[in-house]
Amino acid sequence: MALRLPRAGTPQILAFLAILAVNWVVSPQFFDTRFQDGRLFGSLVDVFNRGAPVALLSIGMALVIATRGIDLSVGAVMAICGAVAASLADSHPLPVALGAALGAGLLCGLWNGLLVAVLGIQPIVATLILMVAGRGIAQLITEGRIVTFSDPGLAWFGGGSVLGVPAAVAVVFGMLLLTVALVRGTALGLMIEATGGNARASALAGVGTRAMTLAVYIWCGLCASLAGIVAAADIRGADANNAGLWLELDAVLAVVIGGASLFGGRFSLGLAVLGALIIQAMNTGILLSGFPPEFNLIVKAVVVLAVLLVQSPALVGILPSRQWGRSWRRR
C-alpha cells in the first residue's frame, strides 16, 4: 500500500506533456506567452483557445458515451446553434440570441434523447438522423451563405477575455466546472455510470435509466450549442457548411483518448477535455512545424494510435506487471 501507483490519467497527462515538448522542439517559441490587448497571446494559448469547441463537445460526449451511447449529431448541432446565434445577433439583444441558440441545442438534445431513451433506437442510428438533417437545417437558417454579424457581445465569445484568459477557454472551464459539480456533486455521475455499465441491473436497482439517458443527450446538445456559439463568435459569422464539420469524430476521439470505453460505464470529464487538448496540441504542432500539409492526417493518426496503445490493457499486460486491471479505470 505504501507504493500506490499513480492514478489513472497519467498516460493522458504524459501524452499531453510529450506533445507540448515536441511542439517546443519544432517551434522554440511555443511557450512564449505575452499579453496582447489585455489577452494572453501565444501558441500554448492557441492550443486551449482552438481546442475549445472540441473540448466543449467532449464534455457532453463523455456523458453520452458513459451511458453506452454516442452522439454523432454534435457537429451539425454546432452549425444550427451558430447559425441561430449569428442570425439573431445584430437584430436582437444578446440574451435573446444566446438563449435561442442554447434553446436550439437543448431541443436537438431532447430529440436525440427521445429517439434513444423512449423509442429505443440505437444511438448511432438515432443521432445520425440529426447529423445529416441538422446541417440542412443550419443551411436553411443561413440561406446557404455565411451569415456575419458585428454585435460585440456575441463576438466576445471569440475574441474577448476573462482576466486575460480567452473567453472561449473561460467558457470551457466554466462548463467543465458546472458539469462536474452537477454529476459529481449529486449522485447523477454514479447513476450515469451504472446505466452505462449495466442498464438492466441498474433499472432493477431502481435507477431511472431512461431519465439518465434523456438527460445526457440534452446536456450534450447544450454543450454542442455552446461550442457552436464559440465557433461562430470566433469567425464573427456562421458557416453552415463548415462549422463543426467532422468535429463529432474529434469529440468521440477526445473521450476515448480520455480513457473512456465506448461500451459505457466509467467516465472522466477532466480527461475527456484533456483528450480534446491533446488533439488540438497535435494540430497546432503540425501547423507550427511547417510540415507539408499532406502529412497532417498521417502524423495525427500515428500520435493518436500511440496514445491509445499506451492505454491498451493488452499492451500493459505485456509490460512488467502493474496493478490489477488497468482497464478498470478510476475517475
Partner: peptide
C-alpha cells in the same frame, strides 16, 4: 474561415 484563422494564428 475558421481553419484559415487557426492556420494564420500559428
Amino acid at each position: 474561415r475558421s481553419k484559415g484563422k487557426e492556420v494564420m494564428e500559428s
